[in-house]
Amino acid sequence: MTSAANKAIEIAGLDYSFGTGETAKQVLFEIDLSLEPGEFAIMTGPSGSGKTTLLSLVGALRRPQGGQLNVLGHDLNTLESPGLESYRQQLGFIFQLHNLFPALTAFQSVQMAGDLHPEAADQMDDRIRALLTQLGLGERLDYRPHQLSGGQRQRVAIARALVHRPALVLADEPTAALDGENTEIVLGLLAELAHERGTTVLMVTQDARVFESADRLINLVDGQLDSDVRLSE
């Protein structure tokens, strides 16, 4: 049995509501969930079921209101700046929207993530080139977002989230804008990170094409954990 301290994600009795008072709307109810380091979990469920809210809570983009939330050894109920920033630097976020600065090339966009990890600065540029090449953008390192297609922009955003080899990847519909071939490449990258480097991956998706890549399939319905299936078992 793995101790709580060794879990990548440990959630117990987590509640969350939007708004306050009479207008408050609770979206998460008593969530209990834990993920091991190196686990690749996919979270699915109907729209409005609280998947993205749970993802943003794990990413410390929102503060828990009830229950316990421990991620990578950090108690997110009490985490404040500057610990908050250093915690976020251990994560790799992939948002539905790429949110790339129009002024930056693909290489420079990914470099923004690399700059947060100066200890690896010497090898970082090589790693950025290699990663973008792996994602099919080797010929477009100097392209700005307006010169890239939607799928290519999304792959730049994925490279930005993965280049620093995060301990935890939080991905919100990362393959929505990708074709089958590129979806395969991205899933391969995530699986490689999870299984070879011990990166925990928590991905929100409705894309059934990707389910088989995961170790676990978590289903959330109406803010409650409906099922949690270990696919590898």
Binding site: E85, Q90, F93, F95, L97, N99, F101, L116
Partner: peptide, 16 residues
């Protein structure tokens, strides 16, 4: 115009 991009930087771990 770059609010979402700046928010992304914060999510990545850049401070205010």
């Amino acid at each position: 115009d770059h609010l979402a991009e700046f928010a992304t930087l914060k999510a990545m771990g850049y401070g205010d």
